[in-house]
């Protein structure tokens, strides 16, 4: 089986799943519950893919909630003070998150591995504290009411919201895919494999690392803004540790540094979580998630996306 054929299979599959996603409201009718679940799932696919992009350049962040929250808050504040439509401000959220991302990236650029993990974690705590200390702007602990992307008065507004989030996600995924397969993506990979060698080969390590930070923060900010404009309210809970950890769990279980990994990871883990919930499991559910994470790191380091390969290897042997 040659390489082109595999790619075409993958593309086919991507296209089919996109079609299914597109037809979702028509297959099952406009169910607000189903679409809400899907919107949240899509937002997290977008957010995890953004995290994944940073991981592609060899930088693992434990504090991505900082960008998620900054994106949300920026968009909420711009809507409130300038009266722009949320569609435009979502972009503003992303841009400001990217700006902060570059600042954080500048302090982190010399740090690696778990130094970086610690410092990014610290920045999420810092973002939380600063948000609380500016109650005039952010509403402090009470948070801010936020305009919805599509006004509730529009008939079937949830369907339009779903399509909006879906299209945004697909566009972002496409952009990330292009980045991954471009010179920039190759440079990221080179840096991840060996920073010193990359430097020797003439890659401007600092520039590319900052680019990764900026782009990843930009998309995370967009994800955050989308989520809060869907909820209609923002509180400092967006900086929660969970919000920082979920994308890691999704990416690692799905498959790090691949385009389909975060998508697959988010869908599978969310479904698993929802179905375990139906058993009435509480802590057991998180124990399972912890175990899955450990087992995947140990036995399936390339995540769920490598399952077909594993099966194939098994069948061949």
């Amino acid at each position: 089986m040659n390489r082109e054929k595999i790619i075409s299979v993958k593309t086919c599959l991507g296209f089919i799943s996109f079609l299914i996603a597109l037809l979702m409201p028509h297959i099952f009718g406009v169910s607000q519950y189903l679409l809400t679940v899907l919107i949240i799932m899509l937002v997290f696919i977008l957010y995890s893919s953004a995290w994944n992009l940073l991981a592609l350049s060899g930088q693992g962040s434990l504090g991505h909630a900082a960008f998620f929250g900054i994106g949300g808050y920026t968009s909420a504040i711009v809507v409130k003070s300038l009266g722009l439509p949320p569609l435009a401000t979502i972009l503003a959220g992303g841009i400001f998150a990217a700006f902060i991302g570059v600042l954080i990236g500048l302090t982190c650029v010399r740090l690696k591995e778990w130094f970086l993990a610690m410092v990014t974690f610290g920045f999420a705590v810092l973002a939380h504290t600063i948000t609380l200390e500016l109650p005039g702007l952010t509403g402090g602990w009470d948070g801010l009411p936020v305009q919805k992307v599509i006004p509730v008065t529009v008939h079937n507004y949830i369907m339009y919201e779903y399509y909006l989030v879906l299209i945004t996600t697909v566009i972002v995924l496409f952009v990330i895919y292009q980045i991954m397969n471009s010179k920039v993506g190759l440079a990221f990979e080179a840096i991840r494999e060996n920073e010193l060698e990359a430097n020797v080969m003439g890659i401007n390590v600092m520039k590319y690392k900052l680019t990764a930070f900026a782009v990843s923060a930009f998309f995370s900010g967009i994800a955050g803004a989308l989520e809060i404009h869907h909820f209609g309210y923002i509180t400092p809970e967006v900086y929660g540790i969970d919000i920082s950890f979920w994308p890691i769990i999704y990416c690692v279980s799905g498959g790090l540094c691949t385009i389909e990994g975060p998508i697959l990871g988010t869908i599978i883990i969310t479904l698993l979580d929802e179905s375990l919930k139906n058993f009435g499991w509480t802590y057991e559910r998180y124990i399972m998630i912890g175990l899955i994470l450990i087992l995947i790191v140990r036995f399936l380091p390339k995540g769920f996306v490598s399952v077909p390969e594993k099966i194939k290897a098994y069948l061949r042997s």
């Binding site: 595999i6 299979v9 599959l13 769920f304 399952v307 077909p308 390969e309 099966i311 061949r316």
Partner: peptide, 14 residues
């Protein structure tokens, strides 16, 4: 083979 495996996963997911 590979195609089938991928298809199978996708079917399971769906």
């Amino acid at each position: 083979m590979r195609k089938h495996a991928i298809l199978a996963t996708v079917l399971v997911v769906i």
